[in-house]
């Protein structure tokens, strides 16, 4: 099953490498990983998407918790949560295709953020599955480039993941 694990860790140079290393060294799946600083400059927040049996996910969370740089960790998929990913997608948009693409972007509530005579660049935000759906809906031959951030996530409700 797919799990979204959210991690607060020390904003140290080696921290990201430790997490990445752990996944390769122990042969765990890693679908995506995003990391950026938080409002507290000494902490960064990582969202990691992985998959595996319950036993493997249990080991993954235990092993992550064991890393000295990891301050706090939550498996968001264990409770209500929100997930968002951003995608930038450059599409070939010749005259005949422009209307069709625009309609599709509207349906998905995306934005066209760059335009040339022959191309559109679209910004789209949503769950990973929504972004996948857009990629399926758009004519494959029109796709020039796809850039995705990987999902980030947050728990539902008033409580936050803090110290």
């Amino acid at each position: 099953m797919r799990h979204i694990i959210s991690i607060l860790m020390e904003n140290e140079s080696g921290a990201l490498a430790r997490v990445a290393n752990l996944f390769t060294a122990r042969g765990y799946n890693i679908e995506s990983l995003t990391v950026a600083p938080t409002e507290d400059a000494t902490l960064s927040r990582m969202t990691l998407v992985t998959s595996g049996s319950d036993e493997i996910i249990e080991q993954i969370t235990k092993q992550l918790n064991k890393l000295v740089d990891v301050v706090k960790l939550v498996d968001l998929t264990e409770g209500g949560h929100l997930e968002r990913e951003m995608m930038l997608i450059k599409l070939r948009a010749e005259r005949t295709q422009r209307e069709e693409i625009k309609r599709l972007v509207d349906i998905f509530r995306g934005k066209i953020i760059d335009v040339t005579d022959t191309s559109y660049t679209v910004e789209l935000t949503g769950t990973a599955s929504k972004l996948n759906a857009f990629l399926e809906a758009v004519n494959e031959e029109l796709i020039v480039e796809v850039v995705r951030t990987g999902p980030s996530g947050i728990g539902r409700g008033p409580k936050g993941l803090g110290l």
């Binding site: 036993e55 918790n65 064991k66």
Partner: peptide, 11 residues
């Protein structure tokens, strides 16, 4: 003392 030792190889 190490939670990751528990149920790693054997439930």
């Amino acid at each position: 003392i190490d939670p990751s030792s528990i149920s790693k190889n054997v439930r």
